[in-house]
Structure formats: C-alpha cells, structure tokens
Simulated assay, not measured.
Amino acid sequence: MAMQQIKYMTCLAAAALGGLGTAPPAEAGDRHVVHPGESIQAAVDAAGPGDTVFVAAGSYRESVLIKEPRVTLRGAGRRTVIRPPTSRAENACGHDGNGICVIGSPGHRLPGVTIRSLTVSGFKKNGIWATGTSRLRVRDVDARNNGQWGIALQKSVRSSIGDNTARGNGDAGIFLANTVDEEGGATDTHGTAISGNRLVGNRIGITVRRTRNLRVDGNAVTGNCAGVFVVGDESRPRAGDLSVNGNDVSHNNKHCPATKRLPFLQGIGIVLTGAEETRVQANRVNDNVGKSPLSGGIVLFPSFAKAPNERNVISGNVALRNQPADLANRDRDGSGNGFAGNECRISEPADLCRQARAVLRARFFSGSTSGVPSSRIEAE
C-alpha cells in the first residue's frame, strides 16, 4: 500500500512538472512599429505596460507624450529624428514646446519608461522632459538645438541617463532638479546616474539643482560656456551628498550673456554653490579660460541664496591651464571644505595647490602612492 502511494505521488509530481514545462512563457510585451508618415503618438497610445514602440529611421514632425508605465520608445539610431510639428501640437507635451514628455500623475511616479536610440531636435523648450518618474532610462539619445534643456528631469528617482549626446541647447544639456517651478528641500534621487554622456556647445553641460544621492560620472563636457554646476540653496535638506567623478571637463570657453539668475558665463569647469558633502574626484578639468566671476577649473562659489558650501571634498583631480585659477575657493562663508591630492598650478587662495603637493609628497615618502601616477609625483 505504501509503495502504491509513493508511485501515485510520483506520477502526480511528474504531471505537474510536465505541465509547468509546457506552459506558455510570460507575456514579453507587444511591438508597435512606426514608419515615416505614421503617428508615433498613436502607437504610444496603443501600447501597454511592457510594450515597445519602435520608430523606423526617418523624420517625424510631432511631440510624444508617454503616460503608461514600462513603455519603451526606441528609434533606429540617430537616423530616427523627432522635430517640432509644423501645425498646432496635438498634446500637452507639444503645447508646452517639448519634444518627448514622460509624465507621472500626482502622488504616483511613473515607473520603468525607456527612451533610446533616437534624435530629438529643435523644440522651443526641452528635447526630453520628465516629471514624476521612477527608473526612467534615457540611452543613446541625441538631444540637440532645443531652446532650453536637452534632457531634463524633475521629481524623479532612480533614473539612468547615459551614453547620450546633448549639444547646442539653450541652457543645460542635461538638467536634473527637485522641482523647477517652486522652492523646496533637495530631493533624494535614490541613486540616479548621469554617466557616459557627451555635452557640447550648450550654455551649461550638466546642471544638478537641489538634489541628493546621485552620481555624475564619466561624462565628456567640452565647448560649453560652463561645464558642471552643482547648485543648492538654504532649503532643507541641503543639496549635496553626491559624486562628480571621472569626468573630462575641458575647453568650456564659449561666452554666454548674463541672466536674472547668473552673471555671464565663460571658461567654467566645475562649480559648487550652496552644496554640502559633495565629492569631486578624479576629474580632468583643463583649459577652461574666462573672466566671469565663476571662471576657473574647480570653483567653490558663494550661493546667491546665501547658502554656504560645507564639507565638500575636492581630491585627486588633474586641473591645469585654467584661468584665472585651477582651483578656487571663493566662498568665504563656507566651512569644512577640503582640497587634497590634486594636480594643479594656480589656486585661490594660493595654498590649495601647495596642499595638494604636500599630500602627494606624503604619499610618496610613506610608500603609499596608490592611485597617483609616478609622473605626477616626479613633476612635483
């Protein structure tokens, strides 16, 4: 009897496993293909969570609004070009002068949208505008010649903005903020990454404003009026607790006129204003030359909202041939900011580069030269 029961249970288990083996795979999402002359928006409206809207190579005159979670909008590379409509815009994204919008609802962040492999060009306001999103991915996008920002996010977390090109935009190539239209404490972005992007010929390459817990790593920022801005104010929590690491920020010598918020910009590498606990490390910041109050290689500048820079660390950078200085601490009210191990020649005040040389010598004579090229030590 016991043996019969065992055989019976074995047959049941085999049947169950066999049923699992023949079950259809989980739904992978549908693919909607758009060709020139067809509507991208119509395909996006038809897409559900997990679907991909593939836009074939060609030129498209429309704005695109995405409000469905986990939708992928994918082009055929830079040959898929989205430009402003020639007639009245048909959705809120276009009415506001934007190219592609990803919009969450109040109190509910829109998750998992991906935009990749396309060009968005010539819009009055922003190339890509996202608000209230989570895990937004923007990859291999060329955002060019837009009136304000190339790729811009607010009220968004866990974003990944990588391997894009933003060029010739009226303000920042990439812009990240807590909110745009109101004041408030810095938003914890929960690890947003801005990495591997190329920023050329914008007013500012990258601006991160009133945000925390993110990284700006491995970007190439050149030919702008200013390279990288980390901006905070007196609100709580303070902006900061982020890294600016391994970027090439060079030759940002374009001239941009003053605005209501900022003086004229030229020759600006990396600027911290009103930030705390920001780590500026292992960047190459060379040949940024200008006469703006913000000009120089790596600059701590007093906040226009009277918020000091505090407890920031500037270390291990190569900052050379910047004018008027490679390193500059112009924030007299700031405290606890440290400069160490940087390769530079001219600083404000004059001892910042000497402090760097002292650190390098100490590492050399103690035998601890990890991460410091021997040529750099010998040059000192």
Rank of each mutant, 00 (worst) to 15 (best):
A177Q: 05
N178E: 08
T179G: 01
V180K: 13
D181P: 00
E182V: 10
E182H: 05
E182M: 02
E183Y: 06
E183V: 04
G184F: 08
G184C: 08
G185T: 00
G185F: 01
A186G: 01
A186Y: 02
A186T: 05
T187F: 04
D188V: 03
D188M: 03
H190C: 10
H190K: 13
H190S: 11
T192S: 09
I194M: 01
I194A: 05
S195L: 12
S195A: 15
R198G: 10
R198T: 14
V200F: 13
V200G: 09
G201A: 11
R203Q: 12
R203L: 13
I204E: 12
I204N: 10
I204Y: 07
I206Q: 11
I206L: 14
I206H: 09
V208F: 08
R209G: 03
R209W: 02
R210L: 12
T211R: 07
T211L: 11
T211Q: 03
N213E: 15
N213L: 05
L214A: 10
R215T: 15
R215G: 13
G218N: 05
G218A: 07
V221I: 15
T222S: 15
T222V: 05
T222A: 07
G223M: 09
G223E: 14
C225G: 03
C225E: 01
C225P: 02
A226E: 01
G227L: 06
V228Q: 02
V228P: 02
F229G: 02
F229C: 01
V231Y: 02
V231L: 12
G232M: 02
G232A: 05
G232E: 04
D233Q: 01
E234L: 11
E234G: 09
S235L: 04
S235M: 09
P237C: 04
R238P: 08
R238L: 09
A239H: 15
A239E: 14
A239F: 06
A239N: 12
G240P: 10
L242T: 13
S243I: 15
V244A: 13
V244M: 12
N245V: 14
D248T: 14
D248K: 14
H251D: 13
H251R: 14
H251G: 10
N253F: 04
K254P: 02
K254S: 11
K254D: 09
K254A: 08
H255G: 00
H255Y: 08
C256L: 01
P257S: 11
P257E: 07
A258K: 13
A258D: 00
A258P: 03
T259Y: 07
T259Q: 10
T259R: 10
K260M: 06
R261I: 03
P263C: 05
P263Y: 06
P263H: 03
F264D: 04
L265W: 00
Q266P: 00
Q266M: 03
Q266T: 06
G267H: 00
G267K: 13
G267L: 11
I268G: 04
I268E: 13
G269F: 07
G269Q: 06
I270E: 08
I270N: 07
I270S: 02
V271N: 02
L272S: 06
T273A: 01
T273V: 01
